[in-house]
Design a protein around this nucleic acid. Structure first.
Lengths: 213, 213
DNA sequence: AACCAACATGACCAACGGGTCATCTTGACC
DNA sequence: GGTCAAGATGACCCGTTGGTCATGTTGGTT
């Protein structure tokens, strides 16, 4: 290895470090999904079979760990939306995306908490959501052009409604785990409503600026 | 005062105790509304101008304090619903109730947290919500009979949608404080949808049983 | 005005949880 | 198999917070 290389490309991580990192990510993802972002770092470490200190070696703060995991999940959603953007039936595609999205939210407490938080400081999550809005905007645009949905609906609306539909049913989710489908159907009827009057207010871009404190 | 009385009716609270209690309730209500239920007891005590220990004299645990305040707010909502149950236009009455309800949620962070929590252990809140569902059921029934809304909507649906509509817009509330009106309009269009197919699943009674742990 | 139960007070406690660091271990390269 | 930097470890630190309690204070009653 030349001196040049030593300066430019840092030595690749050791195999045990890589194994630990993977175990950590898997454990954290599962923990956040099941119990939300309030799970203890200590708990995650136990689940991953590593020590607490090792967690902080891989991610300087808990926020960073949350950001890494949630960012990836959101990117996944972006992929789903992108895949549906060329489907034959635009309205069905939009609905399928929403179904997929709410399903995802319903199975991941941590994701809801992160998305629902007014001020999310994690850059990866912020960027992911921006990206998501853009891709969904394309989905919406096709459906709108096909005359399948009211014209004033935006991508940002859809993204917000994803979390909204899930949270509507969330309080009774333990007893009625599928109830969100009911409210998704209701909302989708609202989205399609053709003879209704124009919706008040509007939302072009998601702005998570937090005013408090 | 006879021995009889001393045994049956306990001496009424002292005037300073009553004053402190009122100050405490006012401070707690404001604090919970502004910052959610995570505010410190110490903070509330300062705001009320009393010592921390005094808070625990009036309410044995923080949960009890939260329950007392949220219970009252929910009872207020019940009153509003009851008052609207004889209004001339049933559909308008239902919509007005929902507007009022979401408005209330939007102005009270703590209320959202309590209502949105799957397992709420506070008896006063549980009872209040049950009561609310019943009264709203009457509102819904009138609208249904007037042919103004789809037949499968229940009171429990409306109560869940109250929180749901608010939470949909909550992430951007600092930037767009009125956006919930947009989603309320959307949802209400869905509720009215006459030519749509029947909604999947259903909800007769709210069951907050928590399955976890 | 004297008495006392009700009440107020704030120092104190214990549990918790994110984050640190001195010390030990180990994988990679020679 | 020897060397060493990258990595792992867990005891420890510290701020936070719900809750307690011994002690001091006060409103009502006689």
């Amino acid at each position: 290895m030349s001196t040049e290389d030593a300066l430019t490309t840092p030595r690749p991580p050791r195999t045990d470090a890589l194994r630990n990192r993977r175990a950590l990510l898997a454990a954290a993802a599962q923990s956040f999904a099941e119990h939300g972002t309030d799970v203890t770092i200590a708990e995650i470490a136990v689940r991953a079979g590593i020590a607490k200190g090792t967690v902080f070696r891989h991610f300087p703060t808990k926020e960073d760990l949350i950001g890494a995991i949630m960012g990836e999940i959101i990117d996944d959603l972006v992929g789903t939306a992108a895949g549906l953007s060329t489907a034959p039936d635009p309205a069905a595609a939009l609905r399928e995306f929403m179904t997929h999205g709410v399903e995802r939210l319903a199975g991941n407490r941590g994701l809801c908490e992160v998305v629902g938080r007014p001020s999310l400081q994690q850059a990866s999550v912020r960027a992911g959501i921006d990206h998501l809005c853009a891709v969904v905007e394309a989905l919406v645009d096709r459906a709108r052009r096909a005359g399948a949905i009211r014209t004033e609906i935006t991508g940002a609306d859809i993204v917000l409604l994803l979390a909204g539909v899930h949270q509507t049913a969330a309080p009774v989710a333990p007893a009625e785990p599928q109830l969100w489908r009911r409210y998704l159907a209701l909302v989708f009827d609202g989205i399609q409503a053709r003879d209704a009057e124009r919706l008040p207010y509007s939302l072009e871009r998601l702005d998570f600026t937090d005013a408090e404190q």
